[in-house]
Design a binder for these strands. Sequence first.
DNA 1: ACCACAGTATGGTCAGACCATAGCGGACCA
DNA 2: TGGTCCGCTATGGTCTGACCATACTGTGGT
Lengths: 233, 233
Amino acid sequence: MDGTGWRPVKRTRTFEDVLAQIERRIAEDGLTVGDRLPAERQLAEQLGVSRSSVREAMRVLETLGVVSSQVGRGPDAGAVLTSRPDSALTDLLRLHLGLASLEMREVIDTRHMIEQWAAATAASARADTADLAAALAGMDAAGSAEEFVEHDTAFHCALAEASGNRLIAAIMRSLRDSMRRYSVEAVQRLGDTSVLRADHVRILAAVDAGDPGAAATAVSEHLAHAYPSLFGH
Amino acid sequence: MDGTGWRPVKRTRTFEDVLAQIERRIAEDGLTVGDRLPAERQLAEQLGVSRSSVREAMRVLETLGVVSSQVGRGPDAGAVLTSRPDSALTDLLRLHLGLASLEMREVIDTRHMIEQWAAATAASARADTADLAAALAGMDAAGSAEEFVEHDTAFHCALAEASGNRLIAAIMRSLRDSMRRYSVEAVQRLGDTSVLRADHVRILAAVDAGDPGAAATAVSEHLAHAYPSLFGH
DNA sequence: ACCACAGTATGGTCAGACCATAGCGGACCA
DNA sequence: TGGTCCGCTATGGTCTGACCATACTGTGGT
């Protein structure tokens, strides 16, 4: 106890203050996607800080996928508010997988959960399945494991989007991005993709039929086929 | 067409290059949580860039919850590898909710999905429920809506952790952080918390009994009680 | 053995300069 | 009138070098 009643709880770095100011401004001025933030030099002057601090705050916002910086001049230049949570989530997953603070098993279980939910929800909502069918056609035409996985990813992301929940769709895209290499290896190990194709057809049919239970079951069986090593008991 | 076969696809900013180098280094040297990165000045010299660029890369890594910077001197000073995906996810959700590029409904649906899965998984695994019981006791002792929500949050996060999946637990914590204010209002609107308490007891009992189906059902009914406006048909 | 204090490595911040980019707008010419 | 060229300028991107605050390290004195 120092008797002053003070505790150096946490020092606030300048760029954190800048972040708070910008966030407040977004809320107060009702800024939304497409609007521009003031230029770095202006912002620095307005807030009474150096441009470096403003730039560090910009890096954070860019990392979180809420702004996008463009050089040059004109209406599209400068820091523009955007909404790209995908790359942020992807980077997050990739780095934490690299640090071994997450395991692939956890990622795949999460995907399993999301995909079952998305399939059931899309089926209940009788969502449009044109994108799903297109991705299925792409898989049939694929000539390599990489190409197959690409269209497979498109199929599953389209399924997540069909659920109508943008947060879940964003998480799904990031999960797939993080697993790409792993998925390619899984397909190569499997060799034959006809089983996977049949699974996809069943998922699509269940969604089209508006049968949530069947859709969820089809997804579950599909993942068991795709990653047999993770579903053994 | 410029005839050179080149297209300036995308310029790579210096700090992005620094990020890639650091990430490569983490992978190659097998760095893990607790290890230190070189000092900013060293890194700048090694990579042949300015300290500003290194610092911008650090801000990104810090935002993603992969490093934590400490000033001063000694073993704990400098940039240390950590694993804190929670705050990154929380910031991500908060900002995107603020930009209206996500709606509360989507967040709550996601929570519903996660929580059902977590409850069922925890029940199947016969997970330890001491933390759940402790949070339940905290709720009983709560004197205000804020306090109640705090222990309620602890209960649900403990449930996610009991599933054994750290990714899902991290997402759960972030979701709850983002919804805190909304949850407090929901509890105040509800007035009586006895229904919620009974729900929690049922969830806990189902997990203890190792009954995944009952656990999932209990969670679902609980959310319907807590957010009646979102589950009307 | 202990304590006080100078030394030093660390991140945090700032000021100012220069570069590359890309739209803007006027000058010039047909 | 119309179009084309070219300089202007606002923007982000980068670098340099300085200084501050912090917190450990080691040394020297007691």
